[in-house]
Write a protein that binds this DNA or RNA. Structure first.
Lengths: 112, 112
DNA sequence: CCGAATCCAACATGATACTG
DNA sequence: CAGTATCATGTTGGATTCGG
């Protein structure tokens, strides 16, 4: 007998998809990842590439991405200082999913 | 000559991935879609299946999903009224992407 | 039973100025 | 250059109440 699931109640906090999407869906996060797919980037390069972002928001996003293991942060103790950000393998894996999202999103909006 | 792109500045509003993720990443949206993958559901069924959701939030999410063509809403003019929600084909397509997100998210969190 | 209306709280984001 | 500190704001979600 297959237990035909009336899927039991589940909260957003218990749902891995929700956790993932609320994290990745933060306003600037997909664009940060997208730029890093292109290769290692400095803080200032990202800032230029993200028109209108505030330094605080960029720092927040990069810290969050680093904490969650999607981005590495490397400090070169020079003068002037140089800090570089790069995607981890898991960050790249996410980038591939974002491609799927992009394709789906384009069809979706075209059909409006 | 391949024009090696230093990808030109782009805002979140211009990015289809951002638009899609901020929409789908709304707190209860993934769970609503997930429950509808199982088949047609009544408002009250969804409410039971989503512990803690407020009627306003559920109505908001369902309206947004309907407006964007991911869900259909059918009113059966009975007494008491019966209202049923179902995914459209595009809604189901999104569901498949959410599966990928789930798989990625599980690895991601396991690796913490 | 389904859901609209109102009001409010929480959080993410933003502007701006300043520092190691 | 690469941020932090501080303050202001806007959008999202929730509690509650009421109507068809």
């Amino acid at each position: 007998m297959e237990t035909d699931q009336a899927p039991r109640p589940i909260t957003p906090e218990e749902c891995v998809v929700t956790r993932t999407l609320t994290f990745v869906g933060s306003r600037w996060t997909p664009l940060v990842i997208w730029h890093l797919l292109d290769g290692v980037k400095r803080y200032g390069e990202l800032r230029q590439a993200l028109p209108g972002i505030s330094p605080k928001t960029l720092a927040d996003r990069l810290q969050a991405l680093e904490e969650r293991g999607l981005v590495t942060r490397t400090v070169h103790p020079e003068k002037p200082p140089r800090v570089e950000y790069a995607l981890t393998p898991r960050g790249f894996a996410l980038g591939r999913i974002l491609d799927d999202v992009a394709r789906w999103g384009e069809e979706w909006e075209d059909a409006d």
